[in-house]
Nucleic acid binder design. Structure first.
Length: 466
RNA sequence: GGCCGGGUGGCCGAGUGGCUUAGGCAAGGGCCUGCAAAGCCCUGUACGCGGGUUCGAUUCCCGCCCCGGCCUCCA
């Protein structure tokens, strides 16, 4: 395939070569549904949505799996604190995440499996690992014997001895006895008052890492194309997934894709536990969803980025320029037969093929917009119509097309507003004919105050709602 | 301490061993306009510091400084 992606394991950009030609299987580590989604979660979804949409645009058949971790220590803890059942909290938050994804036009995954729906697969996988001699039961828990795993550390480039020596490698909450400090839990024996499921090792629940290995194999097979997630998941989560799957005899993911994180204020990672997160709901009170999408998606997926009022304002300005062009060009070219475009789809495609180079792709979009604006000013309508079509096709891949994907919410008001604005525009036109500039400007100022912007063009007055 | 990523013009943010040195925002000048708005054209200031390799480095190598991520739950 012409698409090349950065692979964390080999630390190189390499071509995506699917297991089955014409089909791409992608597994994304989705959220732990413990609290409301923040802007960082959305950046993750938007970045991977571009991958999803680009694969579809390229004509691939895509199985896109994004899991939901709906039971874990924090969910149990927080639910108890709220005095609500753990499943009520996780279900409520799952819906909040879905709402956030929908708000910025993230395509729905082919399937979004939950941990609690996959206990049989998880238990079977653990049994398989035990049979192959890489895991052991101890005091109601099951642990993976890390030193028995071939090549542990290949993904994150960690050496076992370095990990062992790290003063951060402190064992934590478990009831059983580990044979080695680095061993991690595949199965956690139930504690008093915690949710549990029956298993060959007694009641308990899955460890964090095993769920992803089990669900990925369930929906994508023992070997699949892309496993994606945030940079903060490389170690230990993804490293442990590799270990589990290798120990189970599965080839697992061919390519590991990791996206950068969103920083809040002081250059620090946005996260719930640091208390510096901006929820999606909050961001949407001051930023339009399409602008949020533009802002979060504009930086390259692997770089870290800030989210702040200033970033939002710049995204508004940049995206507004695109919207203005699409609107003006659409009005001017209604019914015009397209000619030769002054925008290059091939350049756009090449940018995305090169490790999803959205910044370069957006540069191509903006070049198209500038060329289109010039054509509009020159009245070269056939070329403009063609250019508009290409620009919109590019925007559509990024889920930023103002017409198809983001039809104005004010559209339904149009019949009413149209009539009222027309009245004011006519009155102003009469004043202008009289050269009564004071009166004309007063009318315009009042419209501006009401959020309606006028533009005098060669073809008459154009107005829009700000 | 170990592993990883980064430091680019006023700001955000790409990229490259030399070519007209992305793109957006902001600034200045011009065109258009009664004035605006929208738009077009032009302009300026760059590649953390010190070495090295090279005909030539912002781009490769080494060292240093600074920032961030991971080594504990995390998109």
């Amino acid at each position: 395939m012409s698409l090349r992606l950065y692979d964390t394991r080999t630390r190189t950009v390499r071509p995506l070569e699917p297991v089955r030609s014409g089909h791409v299987g992608v597994y994304v580590c989705g959220p732990t549904v413990q609290a409301a989604p923040h802007v960082g979660h959305l950046r993750s979804a938007v970045a991977l949505d571009v991958l999803h949409r680009w694969l579809l645009t390229r004509g691939e058949s895509v199985t896109f799996v994004r899991n939901v971790t709906d039971v874990d220590d924090k969910i149990i803890h927080d639910a108890a604190h709220n005095d609500e059942p753990w499943w009520a909290l996780s279900n409520r938050m799952t819906r909040a995440f879905d709402d956030a994804y929908d708000a910025v036009q993230v395509l729905r995954p082919t399937i979004d499996p939950r941990v609690t729906g996959h206990l049989p697969q998880i238990i079977a996988l653990i049994e398989r690992i035990i049979e192959r001699g890489h895991a052991y039961a101890s005091g109601g828990d099951v642990y993976l014997a890390v030193r028995s795993a071939p090549d542990y550390g290949v993904l994150s480039n960690q050496s076992l001895d370095a990990l062992q020596a790290s003063d951060k490698a402190v064992p934590h909450g478990h009831t059983g006895e580990k044979r080695d400090l680095l061993d991690f839990a595949l199965w956690k024996g139930a504690k008093e008052g915690e949710p549990s499921w029956p298993s060959p090792w007694g009641p308990g629940r899955p460890g964090w890492h095993i769920e992803c290995s089990a669900m990925a194999v369930e929906y994508l097979g023992e070997e699949f194309d892309v496993h994606a997630g945030g940079l903060d998941l490389v170690f230990p989560h993804h490293e442990n997934e590799v270990a589990q799957s290798t120990c189970a005899g599965h080839p697992f993911a061919r390519l590991w894709l990791h996206h950068g994180l969103v920083n809040a204020g002081g250059g620090e990672k946005m996260s719930k536990s640091l208390g510096n997160s901006i929820t999606v709901a909050d961001a949407l009170t001051t930023t339009r969803p399409q602008v949020l999408r533009y802002g979060l998606g504009a930086a390259h997926y692997r770089s870290s980025m800030e989210w702040s009022a200033q970033v939002a304002a710049e995204a508004e300005a940049a995206y507004g320029r695109i919207e203005t062009f699409v609107r003006n060009a659409s009005e001017a070219t209604a019914g015009v037969e397209p000619g030769e475009p002054k925008a290059s789809w091939d350049e756009f495609a090449a940018a995305l093929d090169d490790d999803l180079g959205v910044p370069q792709a957006l540069a191509v979009v903006h070049s198209g917009v500038r060329a289109g604006n010039a054509l509009l000013a020159a009245g070269e309508l056939p070329a403009l119509a063609a250019t508009l079509a290409v620009v919109r096709r590019m925007l559509s891949v990024l889920a930023l097309d103002p017409v198809e994907q983001w039809p104005g919410s004010t559209r339904e008001l149009t019949p009413v507003v149209d009539g009222l604005v027309a009245l004011a525009v006519e009155a102003r036109a009469q004043a202008r004919t009289r050269k009564d500039w004071a009166q004309a400007d007063a009318i315009r100022d009042r419209l501006t105050a009401a959020g309606i912007v006028l533009e005098d063009t060669a073809d008459g007055v154009r107005w829009r709602i700000q």
